[in-house]
Design a protein around this nucleic acid. Structure first.
Lengths: 241, 241
DNA sequence: CGAGGGTTTGACTTGAGTCAATTCTGGTGG
DNA sequence: CCACCAGAATTGACTCAAGTCAAACCCTCG
């Protein structure tokens, strides 16, 4: 029954060209999306023109939850590549949650997982140096992509520019370039031609003190009778690894 | 009826001495708290001994939601002062949510508001310089304290040390001291003897580009029939301003 | 009144930013 | 198929914000 509802949520599938905001700060019409293909980033603009990328989302991610819950979106969401996504409208979502309370639990859990990721990002920017931050980010993206079958331990395809990396890591684009060169010279990772290639995966993990624990908290605490797939997979309909 | 449930949540009231963790990373017993008096901070430790304070909580704040939803707490929570708080146990919370679905909506909304605050913090650390970050933090704390009647536009009592400020802002304690001196010399704020005193409130707002918008998103989208108080106030039982 | 946090300051170092010039690349239209 | 262009990546030289180290100082509370 919940599955049926989820199918409905997936009904309105749309395409978005790169660089044209799907959601912008202050927007009133509220809708969320489930990413089917392509990458997007959520960011905030500061007076002064600089911006801070809060997170990147990849296929399978649910995005814009906060813009649905609040009256107005409090951040922007922009496709990095051409993107295919299922629109989820407020009313549908509300209805679904009312009909299937466990879906609400899954949402709450998903929101918390989101927050955990933002917290990890915060910690990185606050207390790690540029090189570690970069290594950490590349590993995190790899781990997340692997969950949906888009990466291996060797590496993955990555459409991010050095400007985007800079805005995510709180660095300047120039410094991003220097840091990437250092990592390459250390034989840890190579990021060229839109490809991330790990030269020494274990070395990366050790160097960046990467602990993927925060990515895979177990599913929602209100367990499904019969122990189905994790809530996030139910939500997004993507297969596991 | 919901009110009755909330009363139950407030039943187990406890005291905690300063500096002794209420929740620590990896902890299995899961419980959350509603802060009645005193200040606490939630933080993460990094290998290497440094730490990053994610947020401070003040009376009326609900804390530890993520530590309840996940199997293990993913961060630490430490009282800064002696603290009085009502313990909320997982089972009670679950029961309450099951009995009153709207409470679940309120929780979801509260979690999102939390995330919005962390995002704002992230943006600050990523893209604002030390002086602006400090000004912004002092204003934010002021705004939040005013909501529960603990601050005026003139200032407030603040138990934070310069070390705590440093760990929150991603700075060194020494630099925090210098930045506070500069702000004082500019006539914007004074922070001495555990008192924050605004010298030029409007100047502060202008200088730090403070926009309190993110603090007061309107209540949960599933509105209470009859339009009662906002969910957060319902949750915490504290009066509005 | 002494001790131990917490605060202040100065002197020096360093990670990261800025500016500016080149080179590389992928995509486009002729 | 190729010349061309815009955006992206690279690199060097210089600057500056913030960190580190170290030494006082100063509350406050037992």
């Amino acid at each position: 029954m919940e599955l049926q509802l989820l199918d409905q949520l997936h009904s309105r599938r749309r395409f978005f060209p790169a660089r044209q905001d799907m959601i912008y700060e202050g927007q009133i019409e509220r809708s969320a999306y489930i990413l089917a293909s392509g990458w997007v980033c959520s960011y905030k603009l500061l007076p002064g023109g600089t911006r801070q990328v809060v997170d990147f989302q990849i296929p399978g991610d649910f995005l814009g939850l906060r813009s649905v819950l609040f009256r107005k979106a409090d951040h922007n969401i922009e496709p990095i590549t051409r993107v295919q996504a299922s629109e989820v409208q407020v009313c549908d979502l509300l209805e679904a949650v009312n009909t299937a309370p466990r879906l609400g639990a899954a949402l709450l859990w998903a929101a918390s997982r989101d927050e955990a990721m933002v917290v990890e990002h915060l910690v990185g920017i606050g207390r790690r140096d540029a090189k570690q931050r970069m290594a950490h980010l590349l590993l995190e993206l790899g781990a997340r992509l692997k969950l949906v079958g888009l990466a291996s331990n060797d590496g993955y395809t990555c459409p991010l520019t050095q400007y985007l990396l800079a805005d995510a890591l709180g660095l300047s684009a120039v410094h991003v370039n220097r840091v990437l060169r250092e990592l390459r010279e250390d034989g840890l990772v190579t990021f060229q031609q839109s490809k991330v290639t790990f030269g020494d995966f274990d070395g990366m993990v050790a160097f960046s003190k990467f602990d993927r624990h925060y990515l895979d908290h177990d599913g929602p605490l209100m367990t499904w009778p019969g122990g189905g797939p994790s809530s996030i997979q139910m939500l997004t309909g993507l297969p596991g690894p």
